[in-house]
Design a protein around this nucleic acid. Structure first.
Length: 803
RNA sequence: GCUGGUGUGGUGGAAUGGCAGACGCGUCGGACUCAAAAUCCGAUGUUGGCAACAACGUGUGGGUUCAAGUCCCACCACCAGCACCA
């Protein structure tokens, strides 16, 4: 028997694919285009993770099958290389981040090649290439020119450790996404993108795209739409303020109002109140409160009453107190709310704390316990009480009727609020795209001339972030000092850089036309490839990268630069590869598996098969070296089958049906992310072939072809031994449906719903035939104790006899 | 708390409402070997039985159905996202 040296075989075919550019995609041609994308990695110093292997292999398997099915497949790879890790590595080792990135890319690329992933390397780029970030800057200028980028001084999330501002998305939960530090609020002038303006479009767009439900859900939650009523409330001194509520039906239950201590309303009311000093102290106290408290589960119910004035409930003229309370946010809604302690948890807690009265206005809900849980009465047949002419209405009816009344009074309108805020787009770090604007004393902010792009990142001596809140670029005075493109006078460059999400907002477009030096991507290329058909990535990007990228694309669409409002059609997420102890792999836990080691031990084909077989692709799965061994045995078994091959151009009779079933199953599974069952069905076919004395060349070639997308090296080698042309250049087998059906089936027979035996019948035997056969079976007959009352017969599936 | 998801042998996991546990791992027994590894053969949900078989069995409790892991209702546990958003 011939010996196959795994590493030689794998190297041989990797070289063949590289030399022949087998997987190069061309723009155009007769074949239908198909765009498969996997998130491009951040090339960290740690090298490729076994988790990367899982998703790259999955997409690779799909890509290889699709090519054989006659598609022009685009499966590209590049590098998302701006950002903090490269910079930190550079600071530590005193080398330029550019150099660190180059080294890491080299490692990543060779690891990917060793796995035999069929990327089109002719389209490779890094977001840090000036040829690429030139167009990132260009697109930023489009945002600016269309009024979607603005600089504003707002309270922002500041990470004291990373010494940079973070977006809301990057500091979700009040901690820095990167280092876990508790972020502090800082007032800073920042570049912002008007993402909140797109809240409704981003929500709406979800309807037409095939994103995994949990991704859609995460985005929906993050956008946080709520429809309610905005209403004017008069104060006893003749002033007024506005509140926002989603529960207008509880208006008769208002016993106080609350306003944000950091908002605008409190400033307007200030002159009229009698306890100014006390209120001012409270405002100061709230301003210094750290996010630690906001993060903790102990909800702060502090507040202080604004003395000397009262608010007037517009429906009944009742005068109620106004409180400044930290639980009201200045930047949501109007920064003020009505409080109904009987029907809102927070209002309830606040009322208890401050000894405020309560009025129940919705019956059927138990006030003492759960009534205040906002949704506890919705949808249930609770009716209003203590609400004047609205008594007896259901919640839904009351919502409508009360809104109508307030609208008629001219003091309210229906409005929608979103949680989504604008995207804070500045970072005080060195390793990012420079923002291509200069500040001129005369002209203000002026964009660079588009022909002067890219604005290159200068070389600096120090990459360290500063304590002053300025980027390290600010220290390079001869770079900062420039002339105004508008008036030619002295000007200073913006020294903040873009967030590392910027480059990934449009990389999938660039892959369509990566070498274009005239445009960011040609219209022709975008029209040819259309949307990304199949995009795979991690769940951690659900509410960030995917949201940013969708926003970016929607903006480009609105200014006529891309053909579709959504450029990603289907988004799927892989589960994590956990350590063998079922915990997330980490150095500190000592459970990290390095893919290089596995490739060295058992080869790339085995690793690929194993990672596809380990479990449901979308679920997490723990690493198991034992199971890996099983996959190695499987490959060895396939190799050994070559000894049983005899000439023959058709499938063996007794394998034919199974072969067609396997073609059907593998084809279906590989395009539905059911990789584990695809491998399983190939194992079944292999076992069936193994149990025979001989198999035909056609049988064997078929097995190798179906297995090729999963284990591309060894299958090509064995196929070449048979004397055929490479599998990857050939066609994907087609299932003959008529041959998947066997003429005789083992039919399970139930008596009273319990299986009592099986009978062997022709696939389209009549019910009478089946029943009489069943009665001949001793064990079945034993249970037919009375008259047959009813028979359920599903040909080929089940026979159930009711006695 | 809200919104999703998940729950199946010793283990990873399979099952368009139709024989639960495919396939793999592990374990046990056997073959080969001086021995081990590798490989091959057999057994392997639990309980009873020499066996043929039977009873029980998919987080818990109900229900629909000739038939439920799968559908419906109520609950429990775990995971994820959001969370003082009015």
């Amino acid at each position: 028997m011939k010996e196959y040296k795994t590493h030689e075989v794998e190297a041989k075919w990797q070289k063949y694919w590289e030399d022949n550019k087998t997987f190069r995609a061309t723009n155009g041609g007769k074949k239908p285009p198909y765009y498969i994308l996997v998130e491009f990695p951040y090339p960290s110093g740690a090298g490729l993770h076994v988790g990367h292997v899982r998703s790259y292999t999955a997409q690779d398997t799909l890509a290889r099958m699709k090519r054989m099915q006659g598609f022009n497949v685009l499966y590209p790879m590049g590098w998302d290389a701006f950002g903090a890790p490269a910079e930190e590595y550079a600071i530590k080792n005193h080398i330029h981040p550019k150099q660190a990135v180059q080294e890491n890319i080299k490692t990543f690329k060779s690891q990917m090649m060793n796995l035999g992933i069929s990327f089109d390397w002719d389209r490779e780029f890094s977001t840090t290439d000036p040829d690429y970030y030139k167009w990132t800057q260009w697109q930023f200028l489009q945002f600016y020119k269309h009024g979607k980028a603005y600089k504003d001084t707002v309270p922002v999330n500041w990470c004291p450790k990373c010494k940079t501002v973070l977006s809301n998305e990057d500091s979700a939960g009040g901690v820095c996404e990167r280092c876990g530090s508790v972020v502090v609020q800082k007032l800073k002038s920042q570049w912002m993108l008007k993402m909140s303006e797109y809240a409704e479009d981003l929500l709406d767009g979800l309807k037409d795209i095939n994103f995994a439900d949990k991704v859609k859900m995460a985005q929906t939650e993050w956008i946080g739409k709520s429809v309610g009523v905005q209403m004017k409330v008069k104060t006893t001194d003749g002033g007024e303020f506005e509140i926002f509520t989603t529960c207008i039906e509880t208006i008769y239950g208002i016993t106080f109002f609350v306003i944000a201590p950091d908002g605008k309303i409190i400033k307007d009311l200030m002159p009229k109140i009698t306890n100014k000093a006390e209120v001012e102290d409270y405002i100061k106290l709230c301003a210094t409160k750290s996010n630690l408290e906001r993060k903790s589960n102990v909800k702060d119910k502090s507040g202080v009453e604004l003395k000397g004035i009262k608010a007037i409930n517009p429906v009944n003229g009742k005068e109620v107190p106004i409180y400044a309370a930290s639980f009201v946010l200045g930047d949501y809604g109007t920064g003020a709310a009505m409080a109904v302690p009987t029907h809102d948890q927070r209002d309830f807690e606040f009322a208890v704390e401050h000894n405020i009265s309560m009025i129940q206005v919705i019956g059927g809900a138990d006030v003492s316990e759960k009534a205040f849980e906002k949704h506890s009465y919705l949808g249930k047949k609770c009716r209003l009480m203590n609400s004047a002419e609205f008594d007896g209405l259901t919640v839904e009816q009351a919502k409508e009727a009360i809104t109508a009344k307030l609208q008629k009074m001219g003091i309210a309108k229906v409005t929608t609020n979103y949680r989504l805020r604008d995207w804070i787009f500045s970072r005080q770090r060195f390793w990012g795209e420079p923002i291509p604007l200069v500040h001129c004393e005369k002209c203000g902010w002026v964009p660079l001339d588009e022909k002067d792009l890219p604005l290159l990142l200068p070389d600096v001596a120090e990459y360290e972030p500063t304590d002053t809140g300025e980027s390290p670029l600010a220290k390079i005075t001869d770079w900062v000092n420039t002339t105004c493109p508008h008036c030619g006078g002295p000007a200073k460059r913006e020294t903040d850089t873009m967030p590392n999400w910027a480059g990934s907002c449009w990389y999938f477009l660039r892959f369509m036309d990566p070498h274009n030096d005239k445009e960011f991507v040609s219209e022709e290329a975008m029209k040819y490839w259309g949307k990304v058909n199949w995009y795979n990535g991690g769940m951690e990007h659900a509410a960030r990268h995917l949201l940013y990228a969708r926003y970016w694309v929607q903006f480009l669409y609105n200014i006529g630069l891309v053909p579709y409002k959504e450029m990603i059609d289907t988004r799927v997420s892989h589960g994590m590869v956990l350590g063998s102890n079922n915990e997330k792999m980490s150095k500190s836990k000592g459970n990290v598996i390095n893919p290089d080691d596995i490739v060295n031990q058992v080869g790339a084909d085995t690793l690929r098969i194993y990672e596809m077989f380990m479990g449901d692709y979308q679920q997490d799965a723990p690493w198991s070296t034992d199971s890996l061994k099983g996959c190695k045995r499987f490959i060895d078994k396939v190799i050994k089958l070559s000894n049983k091959v005899i000439d023959g151009t058709s499938y063996s009779n007794d394998l034919e049906s199974l072969i067609h079933k396997t073609i059907k199953k593998v084809t279906y599974d590989l395009s539905h992310m059911a990789y584990n069952t695809a491998v399983s069905s190939l194992m079944i076919l292999t076992n069936a072939m193994d149990s025979k004395e001989q198999i035909s060349k056609a049988d064997y070639r078929l097995l190798l072809t179906l297995l090729n997308p999963l284990a591309p090296h060894i299958t090509e080698e064995l196929n070449e031994e048979l004397g055929y042309d490479p599998i990857c250049l050939g066609e994907w087998p087609v299932c003959d449906e008529s041959k998947t059906v066997e003429n005789t089936v083992d039919l399970p027979v139930q008596v009273l719903g319990k299986v009592r035996g099986t009978i062997s019948v022709s696939k389209d035997a009549s019910q009478d035939e089946a029943v009489s056969l069943a009665c001949e079976n001793e064990n079945i007959n034993k249970f037919i104790t009375g008259d047959i009352k009813k028979v359920i017969y599903v040909p080929g599936r089940i026979l159930n006899i009711i006695v």
